[in-house]
Design a protein around this nucleic acid. Structure first.
Lengths: 159, 159
DNA sequence: TCGCTGTATTTGCTGCGTCAAGCAATCACT
DNA sequence: AGTGATTGCTTGACGCAGCAAATACAGCGA
């Protein structure tokens, strides 16, 4: 069990949180609302891609043939299918992404990163990196990183 | 300095992240989008207050005289003034909150938690607690809590 | 081939949050 | 007191994201 041995697992289901737990949850809430806004703000300030578009293009750039099915893309960015549809529509309108019918499955659509899209991504990259460094990485010690990743991963995959 | 000594502070501003940093940032992003949705979903599923309203009422319930100025409330919940205006309007419409002109400053308005509001809050409390436990606290060991709080607090207050 | 069921994606509707503008009341200075 | 600047909050217009209903296609059995 390991990480479960110190009483943090739903002892009495209705027992209130400890002071530390309370503090943790509230601070996490604060981070969750404030941080994306802060990074997004930095991007907008410098005329770069908003976070949702940046992340979308980033995942495309990492994919084989710069291509991903809509559903894969949505899952990667962790967005609803419909949300992804609209983002890709926006990006397509600006020529950063192209759409192509899927060969193996006529129902499917691929989003393909264009050269212009790659350029926009590369242009936004330094701003994004600097923002993330300033808001996040500068506050985390390297020794803590792996442990934190571990915790976050468990939270992320709790469904 | 302490936590800053291990190279995590913007070494060369344009240098890419390390693998661990990358991993951390992506997983954090995943948590930030998935977690509020998951908790909100739990609340909706059981017919309880949505997260934004729950948090608003919670802060009111903790305040002196169950009363807070609009601006204080917005700051506590970490929301824009206008967003808070609308939430309080909704809550007022359902009788969970009452509004009163501020005594010391005629421009100001107070939001006051009503008995019905307190009841709704208490009714939602167990569901919220259970959801938070299941999605968050069950995955964090007590020993890690203080360290995590420390990191999150620095991130939260980075502006 | 004709349907029928299931899957991939899009569209309609709605809620929520932001920014910009507006209104009201207070404050600072004369 | 009187005028102008500032503060506290609300309103209007807008954009983004989610859910649920609609559409398009696949694949299988009669």
């Amino acid at each position: 069990m390991g990480y479960m041995t110190s009483g943090s697992v739903s002892a009495m289901p209705d027992e209130p949180m400890s002071a530390a737990e309370e503090d943790f949850v509230r601070t996490l809430g604060r981070v969750m609302t404030a941080l994306p806004r802060a990074v997004d703000h930095d991007m907008a300030r410098s005329g770069r891609l908003p976070l949702s578009e940046y992340t979308t293009l980033m995942h495309l750039s990492e994919a084989d043939g710069r291509t991903l099915r809509m559903s894969e893309l949505a899952a990667a960015v962790n967005l609803s299918l419909s949300g992804m549809t609209r983002i890709v529509q926006r990006l397509e309108g600006r020529g950063l992404v192209r759409r192509a019918k899927c060969d193996e499955d006529g129902r499917g659509w691929n989003a393909v990163l264009t050269d212009a899209g790659l350029a926009a991504l590369e242009e936004s990259w330094p701003v994004h990196l600097a923002s993330v460094r300033r808001h996040v990485l500068d506050h985390v010690a390297d020794e803590d990183l792996t442990r934190l990743i571990d915790v976050l991963r468990r939270i992320a995959s709790a469904g």
